[in-house]
């Protein structure tokens, strides 16, 4: 995965380029658009990129029931939540949803809105869950609550928009069980990463 990590690269420069090369590449410096990005932006983008990688990885795993996915990318969301707070987690999560949909070509398609509703519900619940006493509740709680919120949001959208039939209620136990299992696993993985004090993002670069 490549992401621009320095201001130089953001401006379209390579690290080794000489001053002359730079001038020749961009004839009129005024015409280029420079986004003023901060180190924090870069960090969030890097986190989102790792989450995106996990999403791609996860799409290669076949699922017995459409819609049941481990949600590995949420491991990143959980770590960002614990380390950098809710705002950063929301950025990473939503960036992942939008960029992921562009990557898979379902931007603004039903699948995108399902991901988005799940992510928004999860984030809403996480905003409350981080106020639980940290001594007693760890990433596993966050993860399980978020995954339940995720399926609740998705099922609501499915019911209100895609399949307005009470028959989908029969699927709830499957989805709820998957949410509990995968929520626990993701939470444990996130807790493990933070336990070791290792940063999955810096590791992924090496």
């Amino acid at each position: 995965m490549t992401a621009s990590t320095t201001d130089e690269q953001d401006s379209g420069y390579g690290i080794q380029d000489s001053e002359e090369q730079r001038k020749s590449r961009i004839p009129n410096p005024e015409s280029r658009i420079l986004l003023n990005t901060t180190t924090e932006d870069h960090h969030l983008a890097r986190m989102a990129a790792v989450a995106l990688g996990l999403t791609v990885l996860e799409n290669a795993i076949p699922s017995p029931l459409p819609g049941v996915k481990p949600g590995l990318a949420n491991i990143i969301t959980l770590i960002v939540l614990a380390r950098f707070g809710w705002r950063a987690a929301a950025w990473v999560s939503l960036l992942r949803v939008v960029a992921g949909s562009l990557l898979f070509g379902n931007f603004l398609a039903p699948g995108f809105f399902l991901s988005l509703s799940g992510a928004l519900c999860s984030l809403a619940v996480l905003a409350l869950a981080i106020h639980l006493p940290q001594r007693l509740f760890g990433p596993v709680t966050h993860s399980v609550l978020a995954s339940f919120a995720h399926i609740t949001g998705q099922m609501t959208v499915v019911y209100l928009w895609l399949i307005p039939h009470s028959g989908i209620a029969y699927l709830i136990p499957f989805f709820a069980t998957a949410a509990l299992v995968f929520g626990t696993v993701n939470g444990l993985v996130a807790a493990r990463f933070m336990d070791n004090g290792s940063d999955p993002v810096s590791e992924s670069k090496t």
Partner: peptide
């Protein structure tokens, strides 16, 4: 060490989650 990652409240959440699923399944 995976068990160590679970705090007391986490067990509570898992228990509540499991109960929720059982109740939901019964109802549905």
């Amino acid at each position: 060490s995976f068990l160590r990652d679970l705090k007391p409240g986490d067990w509570l959440t898992l228990l509540a989650g499991g109960l929720c699923i059982i109740l939901l399944t019964n109802k549905v």
